[in-house]
Structure formats: structure tokens, C-alpha cells
Amino acid sequence: MRALITRFFSIVALIFVSHSSLALVVVVGKGNTVDSLSKTQVIDIYMGRYNTFPNGVVAKPLDRTTGSNEKQQFYQLLVNKSEEKINAYWARLLFSGRASPPSNYPSNDQMLDELRRSDKAIGYVLESEVDDSLKVVYRFEE
């Protein structure tokens, strides 16, 4: 049931708020040289396919902790997968020795702090929280 509700709200979010201040956007710190990414490039980084940005600079993807609405919504929008599927996917990648999952941040403020601090960091926040210290590199299409 939880997965269905999550999916429903993700769809609602997509339809009504994708261009509003409540939409999730993918961001990097102002000091990062990357200006924009395609959806495939965001998938490559967040799903452990590549550990660098397209320009070769090491990428440090940031995640919200398990169970957060932002995390559930982000992965539905990105790869259309539930958080349970994402957890199993990362268990496979981690224990295969192929890649380590993104670092988890319990609050938005902590993720924002890390995004401002590190030029390698990439994260997802509500558009309303984007200020001059951050750059939006990807917006989910309607």
C-alpha cells in the first residue's frame, strides 16, 4: 500500500508541482564547473554506473535517509523505482564491490551544507531552497 501511495503522490507531484517551488531539482555547489546534466547523466551518477561527472571530475552523490519523502519522490522521478527496489539494487552493487551507495543525510539542511561545502557534491532539493550558493543542473520534465 505504501508503495502505491508513494507512486500516487509522485504522479500528483509531477503533474502539479514540477515547475513550482515545491518541485525537486538536482543541484551542485556554485564552485562545481558542471552547468547542466541530462537525465541519463544523473542516472549514471546516482545509480553507481559512473563515479565522475561527464567532465571527469569525481562526483559525490548525496541522498536523504531511508523513508524520507524527498528520497522516495526522487527515485520515482529518476528511474521509476520504489525505495525498496533501490535498496536491493544498492545491496547488489555494494556487496559486488562495484560501487558504494550515496551518502545519507537525515535533513535537508545537512544536505545543503554539504552541497555548499564540497565542489564534488551533487544532491536534490526543493527548488524553493535553491539560493546563490547552488546551481540547478537538472529539472525533471513534466
Binding site: A88, A91, R92, F95, S96, G97, R98
Partner: peptide, 17 residues
């Protein structure tokens, strides 16, 4: 791990399959 089938690299991790 010898990577020759789907579970080659995470056969011991029951959580993952």
C-alpha cells in the same frame, strides 16, 4: 568473484535477491 551468471557477485547476500 567469477562473473559468469546473474548472482555471481552477490550470491551470499540473501537480501539482494
Amino acid at each position: 568473484n567469477t562473473d559468469i551468471y546473474f548472482l555471481s557477485e552477490y550470491r551470499s547476500v540473501g537480501y539482494a535477491y
